[in-house]
Design a binder for these strands. Structure first.
Lengths: 187, 187
DNA sequence: ATCATTTCTGGACATTTGTCCAGTATCCTC
DNA sequence: GAGGATACTGGACAAATGTCCAGAAATGAT
């Protein structure tokens, strides 16, 4: 859990506090196509991507719809499920081999009450998460598939290179056929 | 701010804590069409709807798109802006005369540090907000306009009665023309 | 390197949804 | 309760996007 450790060091956790945090976290390896969270089951962990590419998706009428992607160095969770302990609306699985640092809800709560400063970190994390989801929701409402593609091309070209186009298409809310059309127009 | 007071009493705040909370909040009246937040400006307040109906919207190519609605007894905020202090992506305005209890970010932060238990309330509020936004985002991805209408009809018929159809249409992500089509089919 | 598998592209056509608009219906004001 | 403003419906047509599919390209396993 090198990456996670560095992350917490960078935001100012040291010594005992850092130790307590890292003790509460487990490191799990995932093979390509392994599930982290299954739609309909309660998400047990909040994760941090040490390595690999992870896909969030839902089955709709037998077709898989990608709702989100996580790359290295970002937090991963079926937030709604983890937070409310209700069944997850989506599944998460590894698209490549990879590793996750995972923390359970009970361990997280313990850190929140026991480690000084952790509550504020958790608040900041929640606020950051809200901003991400809200911005994404905003884009879904305001932009067309084509505009979302253009935005991605501009703002996260590294993601675009990592994600197979079929997944990218459903993330953008269009069919692969239509993404092909969009890409054709750009050229 | 009767409704807000009752809300905090119900979740267990009393005496001095409750007083401190209410002292940090201001009550503002809004006339129909008054703005609470303007797109492009930083949202100064987190609000609670004492009365009235409030609409979140964005202008897209000269057309207004409704992104959300708040009714009595719910929390109102351009969350992303309030939390990150970046310019708001959407405007919020009163669709009817109404009243809001408002708290500034600095006052909120003060409550978080000074009032026992308030930090936990704020965490719960953030978590609850995340669930709401995440579920809404999920619906945007997974459901069609027609299905979103059906869901609303089933789960929040009271909202449906209060919201003029033109706003409802853009909330569902369709044109009024198409909503009319959808409603025609249901009959 | 070869073959099999998976992914990507783009044609032809179908469906969904949007645009424009005119006719009603509803609501508000005096 | 009459007149004007605003909101709602639905026809005709247009544009955007989906479905189905076959061939090309890329990737992976032996």
């Amino acid at each position: 859990m090198e990456k996670l450790k560095k992350y917490f060091e960078d935001i100012g956790f040291t010594g005992e506090a850092l130790e307590k945090i890292l003790e509460s976290v487990i490191l799990i390896e995932f093979k390509k196509n392994d599930f982290v969270v299954e739609e309909g089951k309660v998400a047990k962990y909040f994760g941090f991507v040490e390595s690999g590419l992870f896909q969030y998706f839902v089955m709709v009428d037998g077709v898989e719809k990608t709702t989100y992607m996580n790359i290295e160095g970002t937090f991963l969770a079926s937030v709604l499920s983890f937070v409310s302990q209700k069944p997850a609306l989506e599944s998460i699985r590894a698209l490549t081999d990879g590793k996750l640092s995972l923390i359970s809800r009970s361990n997280l709560k313990k850190l929140v009450t026991e480690v000084p400063g952790f509550k504020d970190f958790y608040i900041a994390l929640l606020e950051h998460t809200i901003c991400g989801i809200d911005a994404s929701r905003h884009d879904l409402i305001v932009l067309t598939g084509e505009e979302r593609y253009a935005k991605m091309l501009k703002e996260e070209p590294h993601l675009l290179q990592q994600i197979p186009l079929q997944y990218l298409a459903s993330m953008l809310g269009v069919t692969p056929r239509h993404l092909s059309r969009i890409r054709g127009q750009v050229r």
